[in-house]
Every structure is written in structure tokens, then in C-alpha cells.
Amino acid sequence: MSPGRISVNVVNLGRVAYRSSLQIQQQYIRQHFDSSSQTPNTVLLCEHDPVYTTGIRRAPYPAEEEQRLKDLGAEFFRTNRGGLITFHGPGQMVCYPILNLGCFKKSVRWYVCELEKTVIKMCGKFGIKASTSPDTGVWVGNNKICAIGIHCGRYITSHGLGLNCNTDMSWFDHIVPCGIVGKGVTSLSQELGRDVTIEEAAPVLLQAFSEQFNCMIIECLCVQKKQTLN
């Protein structure tokens, strides 16, 4: 580890309810604001049961549409992240960085761009050519492989990204993902023509994150096991 290199803890929450993930994020955010706390920068990794979430970029999603989606067997949440409606569910790796941008660069635009570059770099490690577009997120051609929607208050970040690994893509058929008409969605499995699990993708994403944010990743996969990734 080079002098002054920032450490970022990774906490793998496993399969967790979306409501619980919001509460856990708030716990970490409050610790950052507590002057007596030595809270490390943290990345929360998890997977959710089927849930549709909306952001704050447009007027509230109509109540009848909310009920229609709930009738499919998914939960529905209105959040304070940026962006429009998206889906989280089994087979999608969700990454919630709870970072103090004062440790990196106090720029929300920079931060979102770094998240995009992280996912592009990760896709490259799998041999997938991904890119950005005028619309936030990471794309393979005209299909979005990773949605990004963040919140930042007093330079503490929350929410983050959802990367499709071996997600059941039919859940996206019931919405216009991120409000972008005429474009589709894809996954690592779909692009590679084989099953790519979250377990396979997670260490590749963390390696790309470590490189892009120039930080040292400390994986806290369980109480007894920690390993560093330079």
C-alpha cells in the first residue's frame, strides 16, 4: 500500500431485503457525521429480492403503476437517489459505497464518472466492451448492463449501482428502465453466453474499484476472514 492510500472496507450483506439495506446505509452515514466516530469508507455488497425503485429526478411514479408492479410479486420503494425507475432482484449485484468524498475528490460528477469507469474496467476484465452514453450508467451497445443512481449529502455518498450478472431479465419488461425509451438491458451472462454469478463477478468488481479509486480494499466477508486487495 502506497503512503496515504485510502482504505475502503467491503461488507458483504448477502441476500437482504431492500428496506433493510436502506436502514444499514443510514447507520453508516450517521457514523460518518458523528465526530466521535472513526468510520471507515465502506462498500456494501448485496443482492435483493425483486423490488422496483424510483429516484427523485421526475414526478412521483403513479400509484396505479406502483400497484401494477406490486401485483407482479415485487416490492416498490420511492427513494432519494438520482435517476428514474429500475429493478433490483436475484442475480443482480448491488453495490452501495458509503464514502466520504473529502477523502477522494469533492465532486459528485467526478464520483459518478468513476463508478461508470469502474464498471467499464470490470466488464473489460470479462472481455466485454462497455461504454458510457449521455444517459447515466454503463452500456453494451444500446443495452444497459449497470444502472447507477446515487445520493450525496455533505459529501457522504449512498445508494450506488446495480450490475446485472445472471438476473432474470424479464422483470425489466414491465417498466421503461431508467425512463429511457428505445434502449434495452443486458447482463454479464447474456453477453458471455454462460452463467456468471454474483460470486464470480464480485471480486472482479472490487479489483476494478481498487484500481479506479486508487484505494486498498479490505474485504470483511465475515468476522473471522479479512483479506486485502491492492
Rank of each mutant, 00 (worst) to 15 (best):
M1C: 06
R5T: 11
N12Q: 12
N12F: 05
L13S: 11
L13H: 10
R15D: 01
A17L: 13
Y18F: 15
S21P: 03
Q23T: 07
I29E: 06
Q38I: 02
T42K: 09
T42M: 10
L44P: 01
C46A: 12
Y52C: 10
Y61N: 02
E64A: 12
E66W: 00
Q67L: 13
Q67K: 15
L69R: 06
K70T: 02
L72F: 03
N80M: 07
G83V: 07
I85F: 10
F87K: 05
H88S: 08
H88G: 04
L99Q: 02
G102I: 01
G102C: 09
G102K: 13
K105Q: 13
R109S: 11
Y111L: 11
E116Q: 12
K117N: 13
K117Q: 13
K121P: 00
K121R: 15
G124D: 10
G124L: 10
F126Q: 07
G137H: 08
I148M: 08
S158D: 09
H159N: 11
G160R: 03
L161M: 15
T167H: 06
F172M: 09
D173A: 14
G179A: 08
I180F: 12
S187G: 12
L188W: 06
I198Y: 05
E199W: 01
A202L: 13
E219H: 11
L221P: 00
K225P: 00
K226M: 13
T228A: 14
